[in-house]
């Protein structure tokens, strides 16, 4: 159970860094600041509804939290290897599994606390400026943000456990982010083009192609978000794979299956990181 102590120490250590405070400031700015924009854009004399405020929040949060999760996580273990404090950690009766687990929990806390504070401040802004406040939806968005934080922290800690230098961890983390958060749809398109000889349209697509698209953490998280939050207009344009597939929707394109993919995005990077860290020679 010593991962509890590691998580607590890690959070205390990070909590004394400028990073936690910078993140808190950034998230308050993001959640509270961005939710003001629809109010400012609304025509005179009308009070926009809650959905307008929250709907506007979704994309910036979806971009910001992955970056924050990766930044907070990628140094978690490798920096201890570089500084030599890992010798304290592993000279004490901690196993390497305790270290990986403790780091994920500790760093997820580092992302979660500013997220919660940001959402509290955001709630005050939304209550003040908008018509109505759907508590359940707002909590849904918060829960989703926390889940997203956990996923990206897990990926980054997995990378951090796998490599022997900070530079490698940074390169791998950047590479991951560019591949899966920016290029992934193009990768899927390239595969489609190779197989079918043409570019994919918007609907009537084969299930395997949509599944490849769905495999990125961002896409699978988006699918989950639709089950947690009622977005304005979400029912008008069916962005889910179900609306784009040719024929029957296979189970792996249903939204519940996105939970399986997201769970794998937490477990697999950590598993690989743990195995590589367990076999690492610390000399």
């Amino acid at each position: 159970m010593s991962w509890v102590h590691i998580a607590r120490k890690d959070f205390a250590d990070a909590g004394r860094s400028m990073m936690l405070w910078a993140l808190t400031g950034l998230l308050i700015l993001a959640v509270a600041g961005i939710s003001v924009i629809p109010y400012l854009l609304a025509s005179d004399g009308t009070t926009p509804g809650f959905e307008d405020g929250v709907g506007f929040l979704f994309s910036p949060i979806g971009l910001l939290i992955p970056i924050i999760g990766l930044v907070v996580g990628y140094q978690a273990i490798v920096s201890e290897r570089e500084s030599g404090s890992i010798r304290f950690l592993l000279g004490l009766p901690n196993t390497r599994r305790d270290v990986v687990l403790g780091k994920v929990i500790g760093r997820t806390g580092v992302v979660a606390i500013p997220t919660v504070i940001g959402f509290l401040v955001g709630a005050a802004v939304i209550v003040a400026l908008y018509e109505g406040f759907a508590v359940v939806d707002y909590l849904g968005l918060l829960a989703f943000s926390l889940l997203m934080g956990l996923v990206y922290v897990a990926i980054a800690v997995g990378i951090s456990a796998s490599v022997s230098s900070r530079a490698k961890a940074l390169a791998a983390t950047l590479g991951f982010f560019v591949l899966f958060d920016f290029l992934w749809e193009f990768v899927a398109m390239a595969i489609y083009w190779t197989v079918e000889g043409s570019l994919p349209g918007f609907d009537g697509l084969p299930a395997w192609y949509l599944f490849i698209v769905r495999l990125s953490p961002g896409q699978s998280l988006s699918a989950i978000s639709l089950t947690l939050i009622d977005f304005v207009g979400a029912e008008d344009i069916d962005l889910t794979a179900a609306g784009r597939v040719a024929g029957e929707v296979p189970f792996y394109l249903e939204n519940w299956f996105a939970w399986v993919i997201v769970t794998l995005w937490i477990v697999v990077p950590l598993g690989i990181g743990y195995v590589r860290f367990k076999n690492a020679v610390l000399s």
């Binding site: 500084s83 030599g84 304290f88």
Partner: peptide
């Protein structure tokens, strides 16, 4: 007491 250890600078 390890050799070449590093400390947690903020603790």
């Amino acid at each position: 007491l390890p050799e070449d250890f590093g400390m947690y600078d903020r603790l």
